[in-house]
Computed example of a mutant assay.
Amino acid sequence: MSGKQTELEAMLAPSIEALGYQCWGIEYLSQGKHTLLRVYIEHADGIDVEACATVSRQLSAVLDVEDPIANDYTLEVSSPGMDRPLFKLEQYAAYVGEQAKIRLRTPFDGRRNFQGILRGVEGDEVVIQVDDHEYLLPIDSIDKGNIIPRF
């Protein structure tokens, strides 16, 4: 997670939790003059549009006061959904046995993209089995990880 994402999560997570939701993760995507701030929220009873709207209003107020993003930005609040993004080691550990896609920031063993079965977490590394080979990928080198939904 980038420094900006870490800063934003530390700033926004308490407000999300105060509303009774879990901050699943944050994506901060700076694209030229415009920035996208996507906040994923989770709750045991699920997430509906009203929950997203409630959290969005609260986070907008916090962001207006704190003003952590200098340029124009769009705030999106969403459920992680079926192809849920994974941000933390605990999230990878919770989905052991599931199919996942992982993209690294820099190549490891000649590749950046891995798709296979999550086998666990060892220290600060995610274990993924691709075909007959297990890879240990440091969490700090993971750019993006998602569960592949089963239908």
Rank of each mutant, 00 (worst) to 15 (best):
K88Q: 15
R84Q: 10
P85E: 05
F87H: 02
R57N: 14
I69F: 01
R84E: 01
D64P: 06
V77P: 01
D67Y: 09
D72F: 06
A70P: 04
L75S: 04
D83T: 10
P80L: 08
I69W: 02
L63A: 09
A70C: 06
D64C: 06
M82C: 08
L59E: 00
L89Y: 08
V55K: 00
V55A: 01
L86M: 15
A70G: 06
R84K: 04
P85C: 04
R57P: 06
R84I: 09
S56F: 05
L75H: 05
A70H: 12
S56K: 09
P85I: 00
M82K: 07
P80H: 11
L63N: 08
V55Q: 02
V62E: 03
P80V: 00
L89K: 09
E76Q: 14
R57W: 13
L86I: 13
T54F: 00
V62K: 08
D64L: 08
K88T: 14
L63W: 05
L59R: 02
Q58K: 15
P68H: 04
M82Q: 08
S79L: 03
L59H: 10
Y73N: 03
V77K: 00
L63C: 03
F87V: 01
K88R: 15
L75Q: 03
A70Y: 12
R84N: 10
N71Y: 01
L75E: 09
Y73I: 12
L86P: 00
T54V: 11
F87P: 07
S56N: 12
Q58N: 15
D72N: 12
L63V: 12
T54P: 00
V77R: 01
V62C: 02
L63H: 01
S79W: 09
G81H: 01
G81M: 02
V55N: 01
E76T: 15
E76I: 12
V62Y: 01
G81N: 08
T74V: 12
L59C: 11
V65H: 04
E66V: 10
L86R: 05
